[in-house]
């Protein structure tokens, strides 16, 4: 019984992939993507998209980690509640609104887009860093203190490794949202794969629309998968074992 349902599920997946292929051929997306005339444009847009995501994620990760870690230090701990409240409030603001506000204050182009993407990506990273470090058991930290570790040593050898899984989850959420929001950055003149999506919608060109939407989707799924791999590498084996 179990085997049959698993087989049916695999069959269904296969059929779905096949149907997608037929649909792509029918709508001319494959012809559009393999057209040598479109090739430089595709590479340029992909690079722009990648550039937006990479720069904003690099800044956001550093800032988010610094904010999250410094809020767990004894001097700043009392502010962590209010800061997290503001971060939570910031996360409810829609991504399009953040981009639109960045544009109306900073103008159009790549810089306001990177600014908006960075601000939006800091939130999940900072929140998860704080939550991850806070969840480290007090007894573990006491044990580290008893072994004579300094507070810096405790941070790098105990707190961060134990919080790594939660931090990486925050990083993954931020990255996936960032890739999706970068597709909207076209609207404020920063380019990226959104160019083909929005032009495709405006011109009712299904092939162009799909040629933009599919790479963005694949990019997000791939990023999600890669971070999962990364967490298999970075999270210590003992922690992974204790979870199972």
């Amino acid at each position: 019984m179990k085997k049959l349902s698993a087989k049916m599920y695999n069959m269904l997946l296969l059929l779905l992939v096949f149907a997608c292929g037929v649909a792509l051929e029918k709508t001319g997306t494959i012809a559009f993507l393999t057209d040598p005339y479109n090739y430089p444009e595709l590479m340029r847009l992909l690079f722009q998209h990648f550039y937006l995501v990479a720069i904003s994620m690099a800044i956001a990760t550093t800032t988010g980690l610094v904010i999250g870690i410094s809020l767990t230090r004894s001097g700043l701990r009392k502010y962590s509640g209010i800061v997290m409240y503001i971060v939570g409030l910031g996360q409810t603001i829609p991504s399009l609104a953040v981009l639109a506000l960045a544009m109306s204050f900073l103008g159009i182009g790549t810089k306001p887009a990177i600014f908006a993407l960075t601000i939006y990506s800091i939130l999940p990273i900072a929140r998860n860093t704080l939550a991850g470090i806070r969840a480290v058991p007090v007894s573990t930290i006491d044990a580290a203190k008893g072994m004579g570790m300094t507070s810096v040593g405790i941070l790098f050898n105990v707190e961060l490794p134990m919080a790594m899984k939660v931090i990486l989850t925050g990083f993954r959420v931020a990255l996936v949202i960032n890739i999706g929001t970068a597709a909207l950055a076209y609207l404020i003149g920063a380019g990226g794969m959104g160019d083909w999506i929005f032009s495709g919608i405006d011109m009712m060109m299904t092939d162009k629309l799909l040629a933009g939407a599919i790479p963005v989707t694949l990019m997000a799924l791939l990023a999600d998968f890669l971070v999962e791999l990364l967490s298999a590498l970075l999270v210590s084996r003992g922690l992974r074992l204790s979870e199972e």
């Binding site: 649909a23 709508t27 996936v176 890739i179 999706g180 929001t181 597709a183 909207l184 959104g194 999506i197 929005f198 495709g200 919608i201 299904t206 629309l209 799909l210 933009g212 939407a213 599919i214 963005v216 989707t217 997000a220 799924l221 999600d224």
Partner: peptide, 13 residues
């Protein structure tokens, strides 16, 4: 995981 604007694009056809 699928970006929202891409999902709109995928569903349109």
């Amino acid at each position: 995981t699928v970006p929202s604007i891409a999902l709109f694009g995928l569903m349109m056809p």
